[in-house]
């Protein structure tokens, strides 16, 4: 009976550990750092130097073409806004477009629109916002309606195909990074979801492992009926 119980405990811990490996992988990708997307043959990767947090954050955008070569000398801009604001924004665009041309229900290509199309999109005002590679989101956490999209023009990074910028988050939750750049007259636009964690997920991971390890050692100490000498 004791042996069965012992095997049961060992099995539970083993399963918990092996289950935790893919879970951590998903967590690592879902926090907004190191997210990749392919659009129009371009491979775009958004990386945060540290996981997105309240306050100042540095991020990098790396762009490579279909051949894997870095895209240099592109003017890369980012529009940052809370996810709910983005949803409202998209609804506005949809309602305006359906009201003006009656093409409701059509799938408009949003990721490969031309530069002229983009400039005409209501609410974006890409050329009128002050250009800076550092921006701050000044919003009250409870009042997301006051939040306006923030536009950032990225600076060239220290690697080929890399562009860098700073963003200061004033609230936690889901944000959207709309990254856009123009190459050969064609505007490429892609959206990345970014989660600004309230409680640092890394401490959660550490605490999880610490909890498992402490439990294992507690069980072992409890089960240690008598000390078996390791030396003969």
């Amino acid at each position: 009976m004791k042996k069965t119980w012992f095997h049961y405990v060992v099995m539970i811990f083993a399963i918990a550990i092996f289950m935790s490996v893919p879970l951590q992988g998903v967590l690592a990708d879902g926090e907004g750092e190191g997210i990749e997307k392919e659009v129009n043959g371009y491979h775009i990767r958004l990386t945060f130097v540290e996981s997105p947090k309240l306050g100042e954050n540095e991020f990098h955008v790396r762009i490579t073409d279909a051949m894997g070569m870095p895209v240099t000398n592109a003017e890369v801009g980012v529009i940052v806004m809370p996810e709910e604001k983005m949803s409202e924004h998209e609804e506005n665009i949809n309602s305006e477009s359906s009201g003006s041309d009656g093409m409701s229900g059509m799938d408009m290509p949003t990721e490969a629109a031309s530069a002229d199309d983009m400039n005409s999109m209501s609410g974006m005002d890409m050329g009128t916002e002050p250009e800076s590679n550092e921006a701050s989101i000044h919003d009250e956490p409870q009042d997301s309606h006051d939040e306006e999209p923030t536009q950032i023009v990225l600076e060239t990074g220290h690697e080929f195909g890399e562009y860098s910028g700073h963003i200061s988050f004033n609230r936690t939750g889901e944000w959207v990074f709309n990254i856009h750049f123009t190459m050969d007259g064609q505007l490429t636009e892609v959206e990345f979801p970014v989660t600004v964690a309230g409680l640092d997920a890394k401490y959660g991971i550490l605490a999880g492992f610490a909890g498992i390890n402490a439990s294992v050692m507690s069980v072992a100490a409890f089960m240690k009926r008598k000390k078996i000498p390791t030396k003969a």
Partner: peptide
């Protein structure tokens, strides 16, 4: 973080084994 999680997983395996 992925490297860290791998190391932590190995640490847990080692702790189970040692325990």
């Amino acid at each position: 973080l992925g490297s860290g999680v791998l190391m932590l997983t190995l640490t847990t395996g080692v702790i189970i084994s040692g325990a």
